[in-house]
């Protein structure tokens, strides 16, 4: 049983890395604008679909890398545009909440478009790397790739937010939006940039994880849910929280299916969410602070 749990742990980490990346992407947008982009799940699926459509059956590693950048850039622009449109009618993204509807609407539009283009069936994306044996079990390489991607994105984001002027300014938005405005920061532009960054993360994640995510018109919602739970458990707006929250969700989901049965997966996750909210509403890594808006 310990052996099986070890296998599940490895896969849970891989799956959790996807949730972490979704949570990171949630956080970047949330930090700058207080907006939760509910279209993220379908944006991830869209990236996976692009991977499936663009990659030839026997894709080479170099072509795969090029396509990854192409899909990353496409979604950076697309999500930045989504951000601009979401923010356009708002005077203040923290006091007005039309984004609740507009991000949902974008999610529905993407889902419907996938349905029209692809039909109701799931598709699979070609992958240049074969599975690897871990603990005697064939493990999809995408799990390893996406874990490496998580580390890379996390480090890059940290450096960006601490070292670059734009990054520091985005951190500043998270801390005090009114002060940021009074300081003369170009708030809208920075918010659109953060939408773009979130699009880049989702695009590359969806592409790299394509073989292990469900690429179907209706699967976005489960990724939104898991990514959101990961973000809340770790602490909304906290990058360390996102890094740790994803694997917690992934491993918990998988081991509860193994120990108690697949029907308990969601129950365990939601119980975890409620427990964290009751005991530590700011999340594991969040700090209680009075946020000026």
């Amino acid at each position: 049983m310990a052996y099986e749990l070890a296998i599940i742990f490895v896969r849970g980490l891989g799956l959790g890395a996807i949730y972490s990346l979704i949570a990171l992407s949630f956080n970047v947008v949330y930090m700058s604008s207080g907006i939760l982009n509910f279209a993220q799940g379908n944006i991830l699926v869209l990236a996976g679909l692009l991977a499936a459509l663009l990659s030839p059956p026997e894709v080479s590693v170099s072509l795969w890398l090029v396509l990854m950048l192409v899909v990353g850039c496409m979604l950076t622009l697309a999500v930045a545009a989504q951000g601009a449109m979401t923010l356009a009618p708002l005077r203040s993204s923290t006091e007005q909440h039309s984004w609740l509807v507009s991000t949902m609407a974008v999610s529905v539009i993407i889902g419907a478009s996938i349905l029209i283009v692809q039909g109701p069936f799931a598709v699979t994306a070609p992958y240049p790397f074969p599975g690897v044996r871990i603990l005697g079990v064939r493990t999809p390489f995408a799990y390893l790739a996406v874990t490496a991607l998580l580390v890379l994105c996390f480090v890059a984001l940290q450096l960006f937010l601490r070292r670059t002027r734009t990054g520091v300014a985005i951190s500043a938005l998270a801390q005090d939006l009114e002060l940021a405005r009074a300081t003369g920061l170009r708030v809208r532009l920075l918010q659109v940039v953060s939408f773009g960054i979130s699009g880049a993360i989702l695009g590359v994640t969806g592409f790299v994880a394509a073989p292990v995510i469900s690429i179907a018109p209706d699967s976005g919602i489960s990724y939104i849910l898991s990514g959101f739970i990961a973000a809340v458990i770790g602490g909304m707006g906290n990058l360390y929280g996102a890094l740790v929250g994803g694997p917690i969700v992934g491993v918990m989901a998988m081991s509860s299916a193994y120990l108690f049965g697949g029907e308990f997966q969601n129950l365990v996750l939601l119980t975890l969410l409620v427990a964290v909210l009751m005991v530590r509403p700011q999340g594991l890594f969040g700090r209680m602070s009075t946020r000026h808006v």
């Binding site: 520091v168 951190s171 500043a172 801390q175 005090d176 009114e178 002060l179 940021a180 405005r181 009074a182 300081t183 003369g184 920061l185 170009r186 708030v187 602070s289 000026h292």
Partner: peptide, 23 residues
């Protein structure tokens, strides 16, 4: 908006000794 106003030369210092606490 303030980003234009500040660049034109009008800068508001908010009350309550507000700074960005985590920078």
């Amino acid at each position: 908006d303030p980003s234009t106003a500040t660049r034109a030369g009008v800068r508001l210092l908010l009350d309550g000794h507000r700074v960005f606490p985590d920078l």
